[in-house]
Design a protein around this nucleic acid. Structure first.
Lengths: 208, 208
DNA sequence: TCCATAACCAATCGTTGATAAGTGATCAGT
DNA sequence: ACTGATCACTTATCAACGATTGGTTATGGA
């Protein structure tokens, strides 16, 4: 029998939606430091100060915690891009500055970027064509809108805007994800590499 | 001496090094179909026809099975690139053909590529500066040799070869890794996208 | 006072990667 | 022919994993 029925001290932190945020914050920190597959639900629960089953009152599965973080990362990136996209892009330097927002976001939030664009979970693997999150569409949409506009003004090379957008996105993502995934690689000086890379992308995108 | 081994009435399949190859073959098939993290050591063992602990007589850990497959895959990539690099690159189309080897390899072996360049595990995370796998160095080396040669012949834009190599690698990696990580994204027609993207990379790399 | 609901947890399930101890076949040395 | 070592492999087991069950405790409206 369980006699010592001491009153639960009640973590005093938060309940309901607040608890949910605490879980997400702890999960993000742990995922970022150790990787998604190296972090257990028990570790997350302990970091929050609750029992492991309680996690399942807030998220159906562990993957759903990662999915939520992923969606939020997308939203933040889309917001940053949208802020920078005020007004038309008028010069090559302004185009580079826009692309730079994307790169800087990825490099200054490598944890979020990794979850958003480099995830290796069953959910991503089982994605069906139409199931893209609004945040993903938003992020991509801002970039596409800018390039479509450039294309309409006859400033780009002769390729359809959709292809140009995906190629440009790939170019930026390649640099960001490689620098995140291989921090030990003997990269040339970071600022020089970013400037050169974005310059090459902008140069190939714009008609010249 | 070493007679043709008819000595084992055992499992009739193989022992020693042969067993090792059977394990690698089964693991590659399962990893490719379901993903590394969704396949258990028991499943691999069952596919080979041995008990699960027997795996550990051939590999110290499950990760080592993946690592071996990764090294072999990228030895193949380096080899494919080296074969394609016979002789100087004489035209833009030849350069695109070289880059195409890399892209095709990544898209044909997505799980190996994921392990090698998109990994999210403790091993990669704890990498210290100089600990790059020979396969990575080899793969990168072939690309750098080609671009350094182009640079020496005055065919590239005015940037140092190391930066050009890293930028070019980033461009290819971006397309491959995004298409692997987001198979549900509404990509434009694959062949068109690859051709366009590599064309843009080659165009920005070569002086024009 | 009663009860619905929210928030939470101990106990437990089946499975995971990995280890320990032991079994039988095969070998070299005597 | 016997012995002891070794090889390839097994069953049994471990702690930890993600997830579920069955419940306890606290709160607030009727």
């Amino acid at each position: 029998m369980n006699l010592p029925t001491e009153r639960s001290p009640r973590k005093a932190k938060g309940q309901g939606p607040e608890r949910r945020e605490e879980i997400l914050a702890a999960a993000l920190r742990l995922f970022s430091e150790f990787g998604v597959y190296a972090v257990s639900t028990r570790q997350i629960a302990q970091a929050v100060g609750i029992s492991q089953p309680t996690l399942y009152a807030y998220f159906p599965t562990k993957d759903d915690i990662g999915a939520e973080l992923q969606n939020r990362a997308f939203a933040l990136l889309a917001q940053a891009l949208a802020l920078g996209a005020k007004g038309d892009v008028a010069s090559r330097d302004e185009l580079v500055a826009m692309l730079r927002i994307y790169v800087d976001f990825g490099l200054s939030h490598p944890d979020m970027y990794r979850i958003a664009f480099m995830a290796d979970n069953a959910q991503v693997r089982s994605w069906l064509p139409q199931s893209l999150s609004p945040a993903t569409q938003s992020t991509y949409g801002v970039l596409r809108a800018m390039i479509t506009d450039l294309h309409a003004r006859g400033l780009t090379v002769d390729l359809d805007p959709e292809t140009l957008t995906q190629s440009t996105w790939s170019g930026m993502h390649g640099l960001v994800s490689l620098m995140i995934a291989k921090p030990g690689f003997p990269w040339v000086e970071r600022e020089h590499l970013i400037t050169s890379h974005l310059g090459l992308i902008a140069g190939s995108l714009l008609q010249n």
